[in-house]
Every structure is written in C-alpha cells, then in structure tokens.
Amino acid sequence: MNKTARLKPLQPGMRKAKPYLFILPSMLFFAVFAIYPLIYIIVLSFFDRSIIGDMTFVGFENFIKLFNNPEFGPIMKNTVVYMVIVVLLTTVFSMLVALLLQRPTRLNKIVQQIAFSPYVISTVSVVFVWMWMMDADYGLFNYIIGWFGLGEVNWLTDPNVTIFSIAIVSVWKSLGYNAIIIIAALNAIPKHYYEAAKLDNSSSVKTYFRITLPMISPTVFFLVLINIIGALKNFETIKLMTAGKFDTTTLVYFVYQNAREYFDFGYASSAGVILMVFIAIITLLYFKVLAKKVYYR
C-alpha cells in the first residue's frame, strides 16, 4: 500500500474548521472569563438587583440615577485628574530614568534592578510604607518639610492633596517597570544612527528629539495607553490609603462601594458600563490623534 495514502486528506469542511478547533480551548476560556462577565454587567445595568429579592427590569433608570447623582461630576473629575497625573508623571519620569540608566554599566544594571523592585512588591506593603511616610504627625515627609519651616501637609486627609498622594504612590510603583521597557527600546536603536548624527553636527538634544524619541515612540505610545487604562482602573491604592474618603472616590471605587457596601448591583453595573465606555472612548481618541505620529519600522 502506498504510504502517503494512509493520511487521508481532510474533507473541505473539516479543513476550514481545523484552525478554529485549535483555538477553541483558549476561546472557551476567554468566553467564560471575559465575554460572559462583560455581557452580564451590561445586562445587569438595566436591572434593579440587590442581594435579596428578585431582578426587576428598570430600563435606563440606573443610568439616569447615576447622571443625576451630585457626586457623579466630582467622581469623574477625580478619575480624570488621577489618570492625568499618573500618566504624565510616569511617562516623563520613566523616560528620564531610562536615559540615565541606559548605558549598560555595572552600576546601572544594579540601579535598574532596584528601580524595578517596586513593581514586584505587593501593593499593600508599598502603600503602608508610603502611608507611614505621609503621616501628618510623625511621617517622614512632614519632618523634611519642617526643616524648611513649612507647615504640615495632611497628605492623606486634605481633599486638595489626597488624589496627588495616591497618584505619587502609583507612579513610584510602576516607574521602574516603565523605565525598563523604555531602556529596552532605547537599546534596540542601532548605534550607527547616533554616529551619523554626530557626523551631521547634531546636538544631543536635537538627536534625542529628531532620532531617539521618534524611534522609541511605538513603545512610549503603548506604555501610555497601558498606563491610561491602568490608571482608570486603579483600585487598590485608593481602597488602602483613603477608602474613597477626602475626595478620592474614582469611578472604579464608586462601582466597588455600590456593589460591596450597598449591594446595589444594578447601579454598580451601570457605573461599570460607564467606565467601560469611558475607557473605550479615551482609547479610540488616543489612537485617532496620536497613532499617525508614531513611527513604525
């Protein structure tokens, strides 16, 4: 018998189905843990659903209640302010740190590892150390400020400051991670571009803005997007540092409060849907405005 004949060619229908069969397991996983909850939240947002009693369809009532809630405006403001601070500081500082630590000297490698370590430490530990430093009465920050004769700052209770305090902790935690990724992007730029720029009499500042920055822009673009989404979804630091008090309730914390403290699942879901739509809009805008300016090889 001919050896090749043993492997019968697949039926045309089967041949088409084959790739889908291969990705079926991961698609099932994705459907159960990502798509189903997503749809369920959207469905839930149209129902009145608490821990006891039946689900009753209420149409857009949850959304109307949300938009009429006098807290909704400040919550959105907190969310956006927090995001802007975190994204701005993380991007600028990680780019500076990356430039400083780019050259692969022994010292730089050690500092890189140290800078990366906050990313590995649990948020709870990080937050408690920072809370101790930010303590109004015996914290390190006010102690240092005291040297300069400045008044005490209530880092964790003054509504004018709290959102910044939380943002600083988040920035500190993700700075090293961002910097490492940017360092990798910097080191991927072939050296001959810098040599050519040198021969072209280009100053180091000009070289950075005309050659380096455009070439790492895909990486920075991606990091900024990840940081935007991450900042909009941030929960841990707020829960641990202020528990949403002193003007620190963001949209995510609002969802948590309504679901876990007031057990108003329908209402919480509607806020969750708003968050989702908000992230989608920002992401789309971001791509529309900036994607063209990014240089891809």
Partner: peptide, 11 residues
C-alpha cells in the same frame, strides 16, 4: 562617512 547599512534616519 557612508555607512555599510547607510544609517539613513528612518524618522
């Protein structure tokens, strides 16, 4: 200087 891989600024 003309580089082996030209080193033209891709940006």
């Amino acid at each position: 200087f003309v580089f082996q891989n030209y080193a033209l600024y891709p940006t």
